[in-house]
Design a protein around this nucleic acid. Structure first.
Lengths: 182, 182
DNA sequence: GGCGTCATGTAACACGTTACATGATTAG
DNA sequence: CTAATCATGTAACGTGTTACATGACGCC
């Protein structure tokens, strides 16, 4: 129910096409919300139909034309209303945790490679976030409100990845201990 | 695609009814996978039809009869096969992060109450996990394989909640700074 | 008398994923 | 020639959520 709100926030930060939104959902926004281009196009249609966003056809040379969306007044109102509604603290889905507990009924050491793969992926994400932080927030203090808020969300992503790396190391140590208890 | 696997793991740890599974998905399993009873009944039907699980009707007195499910050989095989398949590192969905960035276009200080509410919910979860840890794993070392694996998953939940509490404090401090810069 | 727990389900709808489809431009 | 990037979409399917439905028991 919040994809439309994530799109509103992104378009308020910067108007853009469905394609551009899809790329943002793979990068900065992907930190806290994911969506594929198929989902985004579908929701953009509905939002346009409901008058939440405006479209402007932008012809381009050397590449396909695009439709640039921006937030209209009813969209802004919808976002405001949603901001005032309480939302449930998120619930997590970790396939890896299911696998860890499931591997008690199979071969726990078979999971080591998989856990290492996840560790590498999270290390990459952390490196990406830290690079983004150096690039976008080099000077702490003296930031605008929007910047401050983007920064605190990014700090959350960084904290999440650091925590996850430490936990995956704990998981690896546990799996190795089970494989070879002294 | 992993609800059925989460159910298999739970039924291997302890056979039970749909209702019992739903309660587990609100507690220990809810730490890394959530599901409502409607979802669970639907998937149990499918799993039974596919021969992954066996049912036994258990008449009860003073309360409704129940159907106790346990994992059959094909279910065990399906779990083994899934454990050998790689899964994608999970992607997160945080309504709260959407709200934080969105509040730049509204009133950031209006979020303070909401963030406090989330903080309290996460503090509760952490307290619950820590109580579970004291109850189920009082004696580190000397545990069976299944216990060790359950414990390392629980440690992940504890680390997640601690990280989240620290981040929410960071968010609160940021929102207050925006409300009243010296 | 009403609420909470135990126990099972159906139905409709919203949301997410995967596969398919098109077509131009640029880089290797 | 092949792959990647830019740009938009449709269709089918699977999963998750919300609402509705039933009924007995025990507690306050």
């Amino acid at each position: 129910m919040a994809l439309e709100h994530a799109i509103l926030v992104s378009l308020l930060e910067q108007p853009g096409s469905g394609y551009e939104l899809a790329r943002r959902f793979d990068r900065s926004i992907g930190q806290f919300w994911t969506a594929t281009h198929q989902q985004i196009y579908r929701v953009l249609k509905r939002m346009e139909r409901d008058g939440w966003i405006d479209v402007r056809d932008v012809p381009q040379e050397g590449r396909p034309d695009k439709k640039v969306y921006s937030v209209a007044a009813p969209g802004r109102d919808a976002l405001s209303a949603w901001l005032r509604e309480p939302v449930e603290p998120e619930s997590v889905r970790h396939d890896l945790a299911v696998k860890i507990r499931g591997s008690a009924f199979d071969d726990p050491t078979g999971l080591i490679a998989e856990v290492k793969r996840h560790r590498a992926a999270h290390a990459d994400r952390l490196a990406g976030y830290l690079a983004g932080e150096r690039r976008d927030f080099p000077d702490p203090g003296a930031l605008e409100v929007g910047q401050e808020l983007q920064h605190v969300v990014l700090r959350g992503g960084i904290a999440y990845e650091r925590m996850t790396l430490a936990w995956l190391d704990d998981v690896l140590a546990t799996l190795r201990r089970l494989a070879d208890p002294h």
